[in-house]
C-alpha cells in the first residue's frame, strides 16, 4: 500500500523532477534515474522513466541528441529547452504550493514534521 501510494505520487511529479535534474546540465536516462534515486525518490524503472522523457521531448521541453559510443551502444543525451525551463518554473511553483497546502493540513492533523521526528528518535 505504501509503495503503491508513493508510485502514484511520483507519477504526478516525475516529469518536473526530470526537468529539474536537467537544469544542472545535459544528462542521459540511466544517470537521471540514478540522481533521482540518490535524491531519495527510490529506484525509478526505465519503463517508467523513458516514456516520460519521450513525452517531454515531444512537447519540446527537452531536446535529445543521440551520440554513438566508441564501445557499446550509444546514448541519447537530454538537455532542457527554454520552454522546458519556463514550464518547470511555472509547474514547479504550482507543485510547491500544493505541497505547502498538504503539509499544512497534515501537520494540522497531528502528523509531525520530518525534522521533529528525527529530533525525537535521534
Amino acid at each position: 500500500m505504501g509503495m503503491d501510494r508513493r508510485a502514484s505520487w511520483l507519477k504526478g511529479v516525475l516529469d518536473l523532477l526530470v526537468l529539474a535534474r536537467l537544469t544542472e546540465g545535459e544528462s542521459y536516462g540511466y544517470a537521471i534515474a540514478g540522481s533521482l534515486d540518490e535524491a531519495g525518490l527510490g529506484r525509478i524503472r526505465g519503463g517508467t522513466l523513458y516514456p516520460v522523457l519521450n513525452r517531454l521531448e515531444e512537447a519540446g521541453l527537452v531536446a535529445a541528441e543521440y551520440r554513438a559510443a566508441e564501445k557499446g551502444p550509444g546514448r541519447r543525451y537530454y538537455t532542457l529547452t527554454e520552454q522546458g525551463r519556463e514550464v518547470l518554473a511555472e509547474q514547479g511553483a504550482a507543485w510547491l504550493e500544493f505541497d505547502a497546502s498538504v503539509r499544512s493540513v497534515l501537520t494540522g492533523g497531528g502528523v509531525p514534521e520530518q525534522g521533529a521526528v528525527e529530533k525525537r528518535t535521534g
Partner: peptide
Amino acid sequence: DDLAAYVRESGADPEAEF
C-alpha cells in the same frame, strides 16, 4: 541503443526493467 546502454550500465534484465 539508448535502452541497451541503460541495461548495460544498470545490469538489469530488460523485461524486468522496461
